[in-house]
Computed example of a mutant assay.
Amino acid sequence: MSGHSQGPVTIHPVKSKADLREFVELAFRLNRGDPAWVPPLKGEVYGLLTPGENPWFEHGKAQFFLARLDGRTVGRISAHIDDLALAQPVEQGMGPGTGNWGLLEAEDAEVTHALLVAAEDWLRRQGMHRALGPLSISIWDEPGLLVEGFERPPTIMLGHNSPLYRDWIEAEGYRPVKKLQNFSVEILDGFPPLVNRIVAAGEKNERIRIRRVDKRRFNEEARLIMGILNDAWSDNWGFVPLTDSEIAYIGKKLKDIVFEDLIRVAEVDGEAVAFMIVLPNINEKLIDMDGSLWPFNWARLLWWLRKPKSRRLRVPLMGVVKKLQNSRMASTLAFMMIEYIRRDGVAEYGAAEGDIGWVLDDNQGMNAVAEAINATVNRVYQIYDKPLG
Rank of each mutant, 00 (worst) to 15 (best):
D82Q: 08
V24W: 07
V111H: 08
R29S: 14
L26E: 04
G99L: 00
E110S: 15
P89K: 12
N31V: 06
R32A: 06
T112V: 06
R32E: 15
T98V: 15
V14G: 14
V24I: 14
E110L: 14
K15P: 00
F57R: 00
L20G: 11
G33H: 14
G47D: 09
V90Y: 15
V45K: 00
P51R: 06
Q92V: 10
V38I: 05
G71S: 02
V74I: 14
A27L: 12
S78Q: 01
D83F: 05
D83I: 02
S78R: 02
E53Q: 11
E120P: 02
L20H: 05
N31R: 07
G99I: 08
D82H: 10
G43F: 10
G71V: 07
G97S: 11
A18P: 01
E53K: 09
R68C: 11
Q63R: 02
A79W: 06
L115Y: 01
W122C: 05
R68D: 07
A109G: 08
F57E: 00
H80Y: 14
M94H: 15
A118P: 06
E53H: 14
D34M: 10
F64G: 09
L104F: 08
D82W: 00
D83C: 07
L48T: 12
V45H: 01
E110T: 15
R21I: 13
E53P: 05
A67I: 09
I81S: 04
K61R: 11
W101V: 03
K15Y: 00
D19E: 11
A119F: 06
G75Q: 09
V45I: 08
Q88S: 14
G47S: 09
Q92A: 02
D121S: 02
K17R: 13
A18M: 05
R76H: 04
D121Q: 09
E22Y: 14
L41D: 03
A85N: 07
K17Y: 10
P55R: 10
V45R: 01
V38M: 03
F64H: 12
A18K: 13
I81K: 13
E107T: 08
L48I: 08
A114H: 04
E91P: 12
L66M: 03
F23H: 10
L48V: 07
